[in-house]
C-alpha cells in the first residue's frame, strides 16, 4: 500500500510518498492557507513519484486543517516512528523545527517527551532572526561555524535580547564565524536544559530543518557529550513517520480519524 505522510509545520510543509521505503518527497514553504499548502506539496510529491496514495496521514501544526487526510497524528509520535525507521538503534529524538523544539524518548513508540516553552529561543526561528541580523543565509551557518576559533558567549536566552547582543558583537568588530558558533552554543544549551528533564539515552537522532545545520549538531555533541546521528534528509522525518504510522494503523483496519 502506498501511503502519504504530510507534515504541515509552522514554517514548511513536507510530503513523503512511502511504500516499503520513500518513493518521492517534496518540501514547500507554508502559506496562510494550510489546506492548499498541503494539497500543493502532496500534488508535487505525486508528480515526482508518478503514483498517488491510497491512504493519507497529516501531522504537524497544521494537521487538523488537512481535510483530505484519513488520519491525524501529532508530530511527536511521527518523529519518533520516523527516526526509529531510519535508525533502528534510536532511543532519543531531538527535533528542531521552525517554531518548536522537542526531545522525545523512544521505546515502542513515544515513552516521554518535552517541548520548548512559548519562547522562540531554541528553535529555527531563533537562528533565522540571528542570520538576518548577521546578513547571512541560514544554510551557510554550518560552514561559518566550522571556521570559528573562539566562539563568543551569548548570555541572553531571549531572542530579542540575544539579537541585540549579536548587534553589539558586530559593532565591536567580532568575527561573524565566532558569533555564529556562539549562537549555536546558546541554542544547544537551551536544548540540553530541556533534555535533562528526560532520560537521554543513545542513540540520539537529530531531525527537523535545523538538523541540516552542522554547527547545531557540533554544539549539541559538545554540550551533551554524546554522538548524534543525522538522517540524510532530516527535514522529512516527521512525514516519513506519519506514513509509517498510517501503514500500521490502516493495516489494523482502524477507522477513526485520530490515532
Amino acid at each position: 500500500m502506498i501511503v502519504a505522510g504530510i507534515d504541515v509545520g509552522s514554517l514548511t510543509a513536507k510530503c513523503v510518498l512511502f511504500e516499503e521505503k520513500v518513493i518521492a518527497y517534496s518540501i514547500a514553504k507554508v502559506t496562510p492557507d494550510l489546506e492548499n499548502t498541503a494539497k500543493a506539496v502532496y500534488s508535487d510529491a505525486v508528480k515526482k513519484a508518478g503514483v498517488s496514495a491510497e491512504y493519507i496521514v497529516a501531522t504537524g501544526y497544521g494537521r487538523n486543517k488537512v481535510s483530505f487526510a484519513n488520519l491525524k497524528v501529532t508530530e511527536i509520535t511521527c518523529h519518533a516512528f520516523g527516526a526509529k525507521s531510519i535508525f533502528p538503534s534510536c532511543r532519543t529524538v531531538i527535533d528542531i523545527g521552525g517554531q518548536d523544539s522537542k526531545v522525545i524518548a523512544v521505546e515502542n513508540g513515544v515513552k516521554n517527551f518535552v517541548m520548548n516553552d512559548k519562547c522562540a529561543a531554541g528553535t529555527g526561528r531563533f537562528l533565522e532572526v540571528m542570520a538576518s541580523a548577521l546578513n547571512v543565509d541560514v544554510s551557510k551557518l554550518g560552514e561559518l561555524d566550522e571556521k570559528a576559533d573562539k566562539p563568543v558567549n551569548i548570555s541572553s536566552t531571549c531572542t530579542v535580547f540575544a539579537e541585540s547582543e549579536v548587534v553589539s558583537y558586530i559593532a565591536q568588530g567580532e568575527k561573524v564565524e565566532n558569533i555564529v558558533a556562539g549562537l549555536h552554543n546558546a541554542i544547544a544549551s537551551r536544548i540540553a536544559a530541556m533534555a535533562k528533564r528526560i532520560d537521554l539515552k543513545p542513540d540520539v537522532v537529530l531531525t527537523g530543518g535545523v538538523a541540516k545545520n552542522k554547527g547545531v549538531k557540533r554544539a549539541l555533541e559538545e554540550i551533551l557529550q554524546i554522538k548524534i546521528l543525522v538522517p540524510e534528509e532530516p527535514q522529512i522525518v516527521g512525514a516519513i513517520g506519519a506514513a509509517i504510522v498510517g501503514k500500521n494503523y490502516a493495516s489494523r483496519g482502524r477507522k477513526s480519524e485520530r490515532f
Partner: peptide, 20 residues
C-alpha cells in the same frame, strides 16, 4: 494572553497518543 491553543493541543494530543 498566555494561552496558545495550537501548542497546547499538540502537547495534549501527543500525550494521549503516548498513553494509548
Amino acid at each position: 494572553r498566555v494561552f496558545s491553543e495550537a501548542q497546547i493541543v499538540t502537547r495534549l494530543e501527543a500525550f494521549l497518543e503516548m498513553l494509548k
